[in-house]
Nucleic acid binder design. Structure first.
Lengths: 331, 331
DNA sequence: GAAAATTCTGGGAGCGCTCCCAGCTTGGGG
DNA sequence: CCCCAAGCTGGGAGCGCTCCCAGAATTTTC
């Protein structure tokens, strides 16, 4: 920077101010500095800057989820890409971290404490996940994607309206004449799955149907969707609708239904959750699904984190994003 | 650190040495320092360390690929996760960057030049991608995943044996009696697709078959696999096998075949490429595919990058990883 | 048992930047 | 015409660490 300043004929201080467009720099000086920087191919040393500003310009994106789920669920791909784009717009770098095993937790905390990142965006912590507690102790600015599992107050989060999504699904099925509406859940220690289950149950009861025996547990994978649906079918041969808590499980459900000789949607209707832009319309038949927009979720999360980092005294709360029903052919 | 040193009753220097387990520190001093650090909950300031060592401890993972592909192709999910795990083992952080548009290139370069990362792992640059050239000019240590598009010498890369994969597919199909073996390509400006196409053509010619009219261009997406297969079928109604250059396109091919009333594998055999651990076996029928191991690729890439960063004078070369044929039911 | 080698320690310098403060310049109001 | 506020500039300090070097403590060697 010294060189740039010399080349521009100003002092280090003025150069620094110009480069960071601070107040109190004359137009002339600013232009000269910027020109000099360009000509000299100068780019500031991030480490030195961080050392004094105590900001790294990086945000950690933490996926606290078993490996298999993150790998297969296209929802996470959307999240990662959305996070990158949103962080780009605020000039932040994206540090990606996976937390698969319990061993990863201390390492992640250690890292975050080391000041490598200014804050973190944490996705999908499930019930009993030690990460949120550790994070809170470490006093690191964190925004959660989805309601943090261990119902802690005082967390900043952006969630989808999972309960309402389930209601939309059930009502749509009910209105098209279905009366035996089963569900294939996600892992129930996962708040989203728990909320969807609750929404499903309430919606059934609201229209006077009995949820007993109509729920089978899955784990968000396609294979689990298939086996859960098979079990459901064995237990309730008169099943006429399946609400799967992810598109991937809906795909599994369709496989099971096909294997059992049921036609979709003629014999059994299927509704998914996620409305993944390529997966859902590509299915056979195209999947009716609860639409949620991960990009919007990430945008809100980034916004929240930024105001947190900006020192604003944001009240910790969970922002709930609406979901909608996307009707295609499967229901 | 000063505090830790004082608490341990040694000097700053000794504390630093102990923390970085340098040579020439007595056991006693080391233990005291480590103990003090633990008790005081000290964790070193990365920025200060970077400033003097000129190392950040972070590696950028760059996905130079159109958005849609990265989002949908489960191959990239495997790559990201593998990269994280491999980088973890060498204590490096993972900075994720997507390069979708031409505008992203200068920003990416700027960033890497700024010394935010020690090196980069760059995936899937296609022909005409300006990134590799820019990267070379910037003298940043880079290892490519897949052969870099613009056939530059002097690049470090880890690729799969795409030609041989195509050969394996064709030979398997030929040996099971298929004689009209079509292919659905990926984007041909993508080296992997180009190599697979060449392998397919050579293999056909090697057994005395004519590749004319039997190739249709796709772009690695499921939709393109479907439409390309439909076109292939229209042109060559006697088609009895499809070699799709990705599992996702194989899924599309199956859809098209089903729509045309062809049975798989009875009428038309289908082989994919990637052998994605959850996608391929989940298909109906389970997909025969060319198996490649992204984890192994990433491991080699990280190893290469590390020796590059370690100052070793590694000869730039493309390491070629073998692929195998995974036989399931579709062919 | 002294000299030489070896292991260990502490202080000083400096990495490249931002921030604070003092000072210098300009212009407008009393 | 002087004073004071506001706009702008430059130098000094210091962020928290690692590295270098000189010197102290310990061991080895003849």
């Amino acid at each position: 920077m010294e060189d740039v300043a010399a080349y521009a004929g100003v002092s280090r201080s003025t150069a620094s101010r110009a480069l960071n467009d601070d107040a109190y720099v004359s137009m002339r000086a600013k232009e000269k500095v910027l020109g000099a920087a360009r000509e000299l191919g100068y780019s500031p040393n991030q480490a030195a800057r961080s050392l004094v500003t105590r900001r790294t310009g990086a945000v950690a994106v933490v996926l606290s989820e078993p490996e298999a789920n993150v790998l297969d669920d296209p929802y996470f791909a959307s999240v990662m890409h959305g996070a990158f784009r949103e962080l780009s717009t605020v000039g932040a770098q994206m540090l990606l971290m996976f937390v698969d095993t319990r061993d990863d937790v201390p390492r992640t905390i250690k890292f975050l404490e080391g000041g490598h990142a200014d804050g973190a965006l944490v996705f999908a912590p499930h019930k009993g996940d030690p990460l949120p507690t550790a994070l809170r102790l470490a006093r690191i600015p964190v925004v959660y994607g989805g309601r943090p599992g261990n119902g802690k107050r005082g967390a900043h989060a952006v969630d989808f309206d999972n309960k309402d999504g389930a209601r939309l699904a059930v009502e749509h099925l009910y209105n098209s004449g279905r009366r035996r509406i089963g569900t294939v859940t996600g892992m129930l220690d996962h708040p989203a799955a728990a909320d969807r289950l609750e929404g499903w149950r309430h919606a059934l009861e609201a229209v006077g149907l009995d949820p007993t025996d109509l729920s089978e547990d899955g784990d968000f994978t396609m294979a689990s969707g298939e086996s859960a649906t098979a079990k459901l079918l064995a237990r309730c041969p008169d099943l006429d609708a399946v609400f799967a808590m992810s598109d991937l499980m809906a795909a599994g459900a369709m496989k099971a239904l096909r294997a059992a000789g049921r036609r979709v949607p003629d014999d059994v209707a299927v509704i998914g959750f996620d409305d993944h832009p390529t997966l859902a319309p590509a299915m056979e038949p195209p999947l009716t699904s609860i639409h949620q927009d991960p990009r919007q979720q990430v945008r809100q999360m980034v916004r929240k984190l930024m105001s947190l980092l900006g020192g604003e005294d944001v009240r910790p709360e969970t922002t709930v994003l609406p979901v909608t029903l996307m009707v295609r052919d499967s229901a």
